[in-house]
Design a protein around this nucleic acid. Structure first.
Lengths: 234, 234
DNA sequence: CTCATGGTTCGACGTTAATCGTACTATGAA
DNA sequence: TTCATAGTACGATTAACGTCGAACCATGAG
C-alpha cells in the first residue's frame, strides 16, 4: 500500500472544486494574485488563502511576493502536464455527463495551455513542424529544431538564440485533451505564442483560456507555417 | 470555472487513500477481486464495495463478473498513465516527506507498470529500441516498429503478427515516475514482459509491483536487446 | 500620519463522506 | 437442499474539511 509516493495526497489537492478551478485558471501560464484566484474559484478571500496555503505546501504552486501582492503560478510544467492529463481522462471518462457547453467549440479551436498554443490550431502547428521537417523527434517528449526550422522561426520573429540559453527544452510535445493529439510546447511554443500576441493576431478572452484569433491572425498563422502544405521532400 | 471537463471529480476519486491504494494495486495490470482490493486498501468488504462502485461509475475502472467473483481492472491505459503521472509529481513535490523506504531501490530498478516493464531496466529497454533504430517516433506518444525491430522481437519470441491485430498501439512511451524518463509501453511492451515471464527471467514479488530478475534473466535481457551497444549506423 | 487595500489568522458552523455493523442476495460446492 | 462464501444495501456514527464572518497584520498612497 505504501509502495510509492502518496498520490492520494496530491490527488486530493486537485480534488476540491475550488482548488481545481484555481489550478485550471493558472494553466494559462500567467501568475495571478490571491484575490484574482478567489474570484476564479467563486470563494471569499479567506477560503482562497487557506487553499493557496495548502497548494503551496503541497508543492503544486509557487508564490512570489511583489509589494503587497502575491503572485501565484504553477510550480512547474509537470504540474501543468498533470492537469492536462486529468482533463484527458475526464473528457472521456465522464463524457456522458459533460455535454459540450456553448463555449466549448471556441475552447477546442484555440486556447492557452500553460504558456503555449493549444487546441486545433496548436495541433496543426505541431503537425506542420513535423511535416515540414522543421523539427525531428528526440528523447522523451522533446524535439530537435532543424536548420530549416531555425530559419523559419527566426524570420517569424522569435529570438531563438536568446531563448535557447535557458534550461527549458526548446521543443516539447504536450497532449491536447480536446483533440487528443499533441501540440507544440516548450520554450519555442511559448515564444511563438508571445509573438502571436505581439502581432495582435489573437487576444486571450478575459479570465478564460480561450484565444480569440482575428481573421488576419488565423490566416497569417496558417500561411506562415504552411498548415496545408504537402510534406517537404528534400 | 466550468471551462473544461470537471477534473475535480476524478481527482477526488483518486484523492481518497483507500481508493488510491486500490488503483495502485491495479497498476500491475492484473485484474483483482473485490476482497483482494479490500485487503490491499485495509478496509472492510463493505467499504471496498462502495469505493469500487464509485470508481466504476466514474469510469476509472472496469469490472467483469465471473461466477461469484468480480474482477476489477483499470479502465484503460490512459488511467494507468494518469496514475504514473501523479506519482511523478508526487515523487518530486513531496520529496521532503517521502523518504525512500527499504523496498524503494528494487522498485526503481525494475517493476511492473500496468502490464509492461518499468524502472531502470524499462528505460534502458526503451532507449535501446531507439538507439538501434528498432522503432521510430510517430504521432502522439506512439512509435513505429522498423523492419529491424520487427525481426528482433520475433527472434526474441513475440508473435508480432498476432498482437498487431488488436486496436492497441504497438509501441508507446510511458513516463517513468522513478527515473523520470520514458519506458516502453503499448502492446509490444506488454508482449515483451509476457515473454520475460515465460522465460522465467523474472518473477513478480507477491502483491507488489517489484520485479525480481534472476541473474541470467537480467544478463539475457541486456544481451538480447544490446543495452550497451553504440548507436546503429546504417 | 492616516487611510485604503491585499492578505492572513482564528473560530464556529454545516455539509460531506468515509467507515463499519447488521442484514440481505447470489453463486457455487457438498 | 443445505451450507459457505463473494458481494451488496442500508443506516448510524464519526471525523474531516470547506466555508465564511470578524478581527488582525502589512504594504503603499495621499
Amino acid at each position: 500500500m505504501k509502495d510509492g509516493p502518496n498520490i492520494a495526497a496530491i490527488a486530493a489537492m486537485v480534488g476540491d472544486p475550488a482548488r481545481a478551478n484555481m489550478l485550471t485558471a493558472l494553466l494559462n501560464g500567467a501568475a495571478l494574485t490571491a484575490t484574482e484566484l478567489a474570484l476564479e474559484a467563486n470563494v471569499t478571500k479567506q477560503t482562497a488563502s487557506s487553499h493557496l496555503a495548502k497548494l503551496t505546501a503541497g508543492g503544486l504552486i509557487a508564490v512570489e511576493a511583489q509589494g503587497r501582492h502575491k503572485y501565484y503560478r504553477l510550480a512547474d510544467a509537470d504540474v501543468a502536464g498533470l492537469l492536462e492529463t486529468l482533463m484527458g481522462v475526464a473528457a472521456r471518462a465522464k463524457a456522458l455527463r459533460t455535454r459540450p457547453g456553448p463555449k466549448e467549440p471556441a475552447m477546442r479551436h484555440a486556447r492557452v495551455c500553460y504558456d503555449h498554443l493549444a487546441g486545433e490550431l496548436g495541433v496543426q502547428l505541431f503537425d506542420a513542424f513535423l511535416k515540414n521537417k522543421w523539427m525531428l523527434p528526440g528523447p522523451e517528449k522533446t524535439y530537435a529544431l532543424t536548420k530549416l526550422g531555425r530559419i523559419k522561426v527566426q524570420t517569424f520573429g522569435v529570438d531563438i538564440d536568446d531563448i535557447e540559453k535557458g534550461a527549458r527544452p526548446l521543443c516539447r510535445s504536450c497532449l491536447d485533451w480536446s483533440v487528443r493529439r499533441h501540440h507544440l510546447a516548450g520554450a519555442l511554443g511559448a515564444a511563438i505564442l508571445d509573438e502571436i500576441f505581439e502581432r495582435k493576431w489573437a487576444t486571450q478572452r478575459r479570465s478564460s483560456r480561450v484565444l480569440e484569433f482575428t481573421n488576419v491572425g488565423e490566416a497569417g498563422l496558417k500561411r506562415v507555417f504552411a498548415f496545408d502544405a504537402p510534406p517537404a521532400s528534400p
